[in-house]
């Protein structure tokens, strides 16, 4: 059975001009246990709405949803067992400025039946040096790592991450990715929304591209949009000018070129479309 299963999900919001606007318009999704699944899409595509329905924050208009075998829309406020099995990292928070990192993490650990050790979690997110610092003094990236610490302290089976690395510097992002891979190794299912294609490519087993509240495609990062079979682009310099060609058979082309040049091809590049090229084409901004 899937960790997350969504069929025909719909959700609309009141809209001043149109009467109502469909934020999610018949969306289907299956996320397997232990998988890192990324949802990509432009702003307003319905990513956050979808995730918040899965987290039990919003009620849907139609369709069927199960998360860990239960319908999040039918979870009553007093049902704490299901909530103990999921972890949520929201988009942005500014709370608990007067508590220290350690106080926050330790406090949240008391909410769960089988929490991780606060000290280990603080170390895992790389905040050991800041453990005694007030939350209000943390940088944006440190703050975000605290959010993740609070999301994983309860040893969740599913972790929801909504744009987790916005505002990170490259080094912080790398170490964050390592943390997510560690969580995957420990068996956690991770649902991630992101703007960053390199992030989806680095982390996700599968990605879904959403526009206008619908799934455009679900695939592995390497095969999305036929990326693996797309023509490769070969560029080089010949007689002082830039040359390029697209080919289904790049290896053969390179060999032929090599014969022509009798060895080294000047400034040779062979590239396949990046995930970004594919993605932009899919959302209609090619």
């Amino acid at each position: 059975m899937s960790a997350i299963s969504v069929t025909g999900l719909t959700k609309s919001y009141p809209d001043k001009v149109l009467g109502k606007k469909m934020a999610v318009d018949g969306l289907d999704l299956e996320v397997a246990h232990g998988e890192i699944f990324a949802i990509l899409g432009p702003n307003g595509a319905g990513k956050t709405t979808t995730v918040e329905i899965l987290e039990g924050y919003r009620q849907r208009d139609g369709g069927a949803v199960t998360v860990l075998g239960q319908d999040p829309g039918a979870i009553s406020k007093s049902d704490r067992a299901w909530r103990s099995r999921i972890g949520i990292v929201l988009q942005s928070t500014h709370d608990a400025a007067d508590l220290t990192v350690r106080e926050s993490v330790s406090h949240f650990s008391h909410y769960y039946p089988n929490p991780r050790d606060p000290q280990e979690v603080i170390a895992a997110v790389g905040l050991l040096e800041k453990a005694e610092a007030k939350v209000g003094t943390l940088s944006g990236g440190q703050r975000r790592r605290l959010d993740v610490a609070l999301g994983i302290i309860g040893r969740p089976e599913i972790l929801f991450l909504d744009e987790p690395t916005t505002g990170f510097d490259p080094e912080a992002r790398r170490s964050f990715w390592d943390l997510i891979r560690e969580l995957k190794k420990s068996g956690t299912t991770i649902l991630l929304t992101t703007h960053y294609l390199d992030e989806a490519e680095a982390l996700a087993d599968r990605v879904a591209v959403i526009t206008n509240g619908r799934i455009v495609e679900v695939a592995t990062p390497a095969t999305l949009g036929g990326r693996n079979t797309a023509k490769a682009r070969i560029t080089w310099i010949e007689e002082g000018s830039y040359q390029e060609l697209e080919s289904d058979d790049p290896t053969g082309e390179v060999m032929r070129l090599s014969q022509r040049f009798n060895g080294e091809i000047p400034e040779l590049t062979v590239t396949r479309p990046t995930l970004e090229d594919i993605y932009l084409k899919m959302i209609g901004h090619s």
């Binding site: 924050y57 704490r80 067992a81 929201l90 928070t93 709370d95």
Partner: peptide, 18 residues
Amino acid sequence: VERDFGTLKRLRGTPMSP
């Protein structure tokens, strides 16, 4: 203020009872 800062939303996402 706690509502604005996301404190309440975060708490709603945990098994803490209201």
